[in-house]
Design a protein around this nucleic acid. Sequence first.
DNA 1: TCAATATCATTTCAAATGCAACGAATTTGG
DNA 2: CCAAATTCGTTGCATTTGAAATGATATTGA
Lengths: 169, 169
Amino acid sequence: MTPDDFHLSSFLPYRLAVLSERVSRRLSVEYGRTHGLAVAEWRVLVHLLRCGAVSVRDIHNCVNLEKPRVSRAVSRLETEGLVQKAQGAGDGRLVAISLTEAGRSALADIIPAATRIEAYLQSAVSSEDLNTFFNVMERMHAVLDEDPEAKPRTAMDLAPDAKAIPAST
Amino acid sequence: MTPDDFHLSSFLPYRLAVLSERVSRRLSVEYGRTHGLAVAEWRVLVHLLRCGAVSVRDIHNCVNLEKPRVSRAVSRLETEGLVQKAQGAGDGRLVAISLTEAGRSALADIIPAATRIEAYLQSAVSSEDLNTFFNVMERMHAVLDEDPEAKPRTAMDLAPDAKAIPAST
DNA sequence: TCAATATCATTTCAAATGCAACGAATTTGG
DNA sequence: CCAAATTCGTTGCATTTGAAATGATATTGA
């Protein structure tokens, strides 16, 4: 293969990174405007909404954030009063992190805005194509799942039916 | 809309970020093993291969890296001997950055490996689905292009036929 | 012509990040 | 029962990062 034929702009990893980063930045405008949240904090809040009182490790295992990043995000959220920490019930090492009323109310603001942006992004795409899109992403994940050099996927990111991916066409 | 229905794992921006980061990390293993390159350095090298002697600003405008990041990546590459700087011909402010022979040879190593990983990622996807996949990404970009809150796209990332996107189905 | 403005690359600085180390708490295995 | 090993959350530390400032050069416009 001739290296000169290589175009960055058609290189899959590059394309993914560019779109992902552009989308993330667009969302950050929204998070920031409403409550000054960074991506890590947004992920933590959303996870807490669904899972109630959980540990740092739980969050780390679910939302693709390194442990120190979760710890610091939680600290910031606690300072802002959106989250509270409590001593773990049985295990003294665990910290039970949960939403405060203010946190719940912040999410009530932000989730609709986030959903609106998501819908906006998808608005020019038919639902068949969107299905195919997600299916392709899942297949790429599946390839990486088999790759010993790749970082394992978190359990939460596994497709519900990952064991039997239906063909999309 | 009920915020409790919101799942992070089905949120498009989150999915994009997770896949993109996983792919990037997998590639970094490859870059790092061969020549200790970071993503920014890889992008700069590839751009130079196609564009010859260019300025920092040119690189910044083409490969989605902030200006300081390009500047530092170039410095590192120069230290490693993969790149050389020259005084800009006409304009004294410009720096003419170009590949050295060592840089070209490093690319000859890395590009096949990168291409192999790209092919690997796409190996479980039919070419129709892959077409749809890229088409969907392009449509999302197009939506952001209309959004004043979104960061503009670089010229290089514009699809060649972005003005008339063919339907994929 | 030459002052005001703009552009270029670099550097400064504060914040974010990830790896590794740490102390505390728990579990394990003899 | 207790010492070794593991797991938990946090923190130290070095690196990376991006926004803004800087100094140098070019361009503009009066």
